[in-house]
Design a protein around this nucleic acid. Structure first.
Lengths: 314, 314
DNA sequence: CGTTCTTACGTGTGTCGTAACGATC
DNA sequence: GATCGTTACGACACACGTAAGAACG
């Protein structure tokens, strides 16, 4: 068995079972790929392909299993190649980070600033998506690692590194009556029109559950995928915002009042996850180290600042 | 990169870094293996080997990582080959079962009888060892699957199938005073010299813990790796035996009295485990099915029989 | 001086590309 | 008849084996 045969099998499956197209993608001529497939099938002795006439249209049961392990094989080969690259071009390559908007906007900037200083030759790509999608992208090797809070749970294929915990805070235009309410309870929050995240984003699910558990339902007048949109409409006076505490920036958001809400909702834990079997290049490891450092800083900032930052009553 | 290069790397590591010996094992001449290693090293661009003069004496950091992934690669290739075999010689092959003595002697016989009827062409190998060793053997692909109670815990590389639960029973020669004691407590057990399993075998660890937890220490006058030895010395009158309930055979052991002890010790769960990534051939799957069937039967037998089998007081 | 790896060279296998043929829509 | 896959054939590459050479204990 040869690696090229497995490559042809995979290319075939990824190109609608067109041998010609698979060949094209592999920079080979079509008869070569045909031969790969035939030899593989012959050697294994089991029919791998569903044929209609001469045309291949799908995989048999055995073919599907072989395909899966062929992917596994080449993934391991790719790991070996990556080890090589790690030495040849130590500080060069691409770092593909899958993250949510909140991470990309509020957590990653200082990390990436430091990272880019250390590895100026590494191209950083931030692929922003929903937590659910990030899981898929990581498994499909479209990103090297994913940073998110939801959905990445205990998938057995992942190594996950818990990084920091966060909770929600309330934001409202300075002078808004909610800012002087003491204490702020779930009930109080329900008195005002609310602006927060969409379902599936940044802890919205457990936010809603917390209300539901005590039989309350907030009046959410607008929900958005990212914090910036929420802030914008809070400034417009459309309602009070409930956002991740780490997304409140004292300097830039000086026109907004902030109140900690960590007594009302469960803490969330943001994690870094990557596919367990995959070789981690040095700069990838370094990025994760930097991220953890920043996370620790953030953890203490959040914990210390949250109570202290509560705006003075007016 | 070629598979043969990876094979040479592995053979080298497994033969004390002697290129000649590696070549011999691969049925190649030595210069061929040398070339494999050189090409691999060249292509990756990283030094893989520690050299003293011309001689290779070890792996560099990178070399070790490459070796690990080379093993992974060839394991996947082996899986693909196994899929082929599964179709070509459906009912032929070798089934390598790692098990402890207790399993091999008291649980496996009926399973293997049925299995051999279904697959007369499959050679069954029972590799008997200690639970700790079984884990290693399974990881090293010396056995296809392992059946045991201890040590196979939640190792991430394993798929484990809980099969049945069991507990201990007491055995003694008919007429022995312990058989008429009511009830049997841990304290009662400590009054008699005890014969049971060695540490690391058949639940000995948790047996001892149960005594230790209440500050007792049984007088173990003899401990053995397998039940047959224990029974022999019980028959000799050297002490009372504490064995796995499934190892008591009413017909063959009619000269022994048996008392259930499941109220004194925690239940143990015997599991079947195999390496997660490995392709499971059909007859292997069939064996595991048969084992589970037998386990269910055993489970009910144990549960039903244990109280009923208590010998009538004399 | 034997052992062990490297270098050099020839042979044969086999892989890929070109080209012609066959089948299917 | 256009597209897609198989078969046939030739050229080049290369992997392996043989044989000779170099370093090490």
């Amino acid at each position: 068995m040869e690696l090229r045969q497995l490559r042809s099998l995979i290319a075939l499956a990824e190109n609608g079972f067109s041998v010609s197209r698979a060949a094209e993608r592999l920079h080979l001529v079509q008869p070569a790929v045909s031969q790969h497939l035939r030899l593989l099938e012959d050697e294994l002795g089991a029919p791998l392909f569903v044929r209609t006439g001469k045309r291949l249209t799908g995989l048999t049961d055995a073919g599907g299993k072989v395909l899966a392990h062929a992917r596994g094989t080449l993934a391991e080969v790719a790991n070996i190649v990556a080890i090589g690259r790690d030495h040849v071009e130590e500080g060069r390559g691409v770092l593909r980070i899958g993250s949510t908007h909140t991470q990309a906007r509020y957590v990653l900037p200082p990390v990436l600033r430091r990272f880019s200083q250390a590895y100026p030759e590494v191209e950083v790509q931030i692929l922003q998506s929903t937590p659910g999608q990030l899981v898929e992208m990581t498994l499909a090797d479209q990103v090297d690692l994913a940073i998110c809070t939801e959905a990445i749970g205990e998938h057995p294929a992942f190594t996950t590194l818990p990084s920091y915990r966060w909770n929600r805070c309330l934001i409202a235009p300075l002078g808004h009556p909610v800012l002087s309410r003491r204490p702020i309870s779930l009930g109080v929050l329900c008195e005002y029109p609310m602006i927060t995240y969409l379902y599936g984003f940044t802890g919205r699910g457990r936010l809603s559950s917390s209300f539901a558990k005590v039989g309350l339902r907030p009046r959410v007048v607008l929900s958005a995928a990212d914090t910036d949109v929420i802030k914008t409409y809070v400034r417009e006076g459309m309602g009070v915002g409930v956002i991740a505490d780490l997304a409140f920036q004292p300097e830039q958001d000086a026109d907004l009042g902030m109140r900690d809400l960590s007594h009302l909702f469960p803490w969330e834990v943001t994690k870094v996850a990557y596919v367990r079997e995959k070789y981690v290049r040095r700069f990838q490891q370094r990025f994760m180290d930097l991220f953890q450092e920043e996370a620790n800083r953030l953890g203490s900032r959040v914990r210390v600042q949250a109570p202290g930052q509560a705006p003075a009553p007016e």
